[in-house]
Nucleic acid binder design. Structure first.
Length: 288
DNA sequence: ACTCGGTCCTGAAGGC
DNA sequence: TGCCTTCAGGACCGAG
């Protein structure tokens, strides 16, 4: 579920503990997550200094040495917990952006200890997340990054760029927006929300998106992502919370998960359909 | 070249 | 109460 805003939120939470620090130890507790973990991952990272923690689409990119980076994908349920040694014991210090609930310790798959005393645990019950180490120079040489489309909150993204990426595609615009090669970082939730804001039906074929709709869709994507980041993300579920709430941008959803409820804009019915095996929520009245 | 559906995984939620 | 089924999701891969 972590999409761009949630990944950005996690990155911001981790950066103060990682940037400028060295990996003192890396404990890899199982051989694989979604994919096999990199060979000799612990040895390759130990002693290295993290220069920068950045984000590309839904990936966290940990630059730890010139032209080398670790790729981190949170999958569905990947989360980080940070604690720092204080005084005699390990007093947990949770940044508000980092998951406070550590989850079941049985799913603590990787434990990083940093030279600044931070202990960073990667927990992922479903193991849809993954780590990889890339030593190639530049994002265009990284197998995970090279095929990604434009970064939606950068200057490389615009209405015309989106229009060009959608043109000629026979697939519904909903499916196209989930394709990370069209634009990087959107998942099921923010695609539904962006289409609603742009008043575009998720069923409309990509090739039938013209310049006007492309422009609306572009600005809707930028706005919904920006607002969600400002809210600290939305879908990093905290299973320990009594109400099972997801995070607070969730309360701003207009359509996602709101089947049968009125559209907040036009009071029309929010409908749920299935497109390429995924739930799509949209307002049948104002999205065309 | 493009599009689609199956697959991975586990826990929550709903039905009986 | 407890078991069973279904669903959630991103990225990848093979089939068409």
């Amino acid at each position: 579920m972590p999409e761009l805003p949630e990944v950005e939120t996690v990155r911001r939470g981790l950066a103060p503990f990682m940037e400028g620090a060295r990996f003192t130890s890396v404990e890899v507790r199982r051989p694989d997550l979604r994919f096999p973990l990199p060979e000799r991952m612990a040895e390759r990272l130990t002693g290295r200094r993290v220069e920068r923690l950045r984000r590309r689409g839904k990936y966290i990119v940990c630059e730890y040495e010139l032209n080398r980076h670790a790729i981190i994908h949170l999958g569905m349920t990947g989360r980080f917990t940070v604690s720092v040694a204080e005084g005699g014991g390990q007093a947990p210090v949770f940044d508000r952006f980092v998951h406070a609930a550590g989850g079941d310790p049985a799913h603590d798959h990787i434990v990083f200890t940093m030279s600044n005393g931070a202990r960073i645990v990667f927990n992922d019950p479903r193991r849809f997340g993954f780590f990889d180490l890339c030593e190639a120079e530049g994002d265009d040489r990284c197998p995970h990054l090279y095929s990604l489309g434009p970064e939606p909150l950068s200057n490389s993204f615009s209405g015309p760029v989106l229009l060009a990426a959608l043109s000629g595609r026979r697939t519904p615009v909903k499916a196209a927006l989930l394709d990370q090669a069209v634009v990087a970082g959107l998942g099921n939730i923010y695609v539904c929300e962006a289409l609603h804001r742009a008043r575009i039906s998720p069923r409309r074929l990509s090739r039938d998106i013209g310049p006007a709709r492309a422009e609306r869709l572009y600005s809707s994507i930028v706005r919904v992502l920006t607002e969600a980041i400002e809210a600290g993300g939305s879908s990093i579920s905290d299973f320990a919370a009594a109400d099972g709430a997801l995070g607070y941008f969730q309360h701003n959803f207009a359509v996602y998960g709101r089947e049968g409820l009125p559209c907040p804009v036009c009071r029309g019915d929010v409908k749920r359909i299935v497109q390429s095996g995924r739930s799509t929520f949209y307002c049948t009245s104002c999205q065309r």
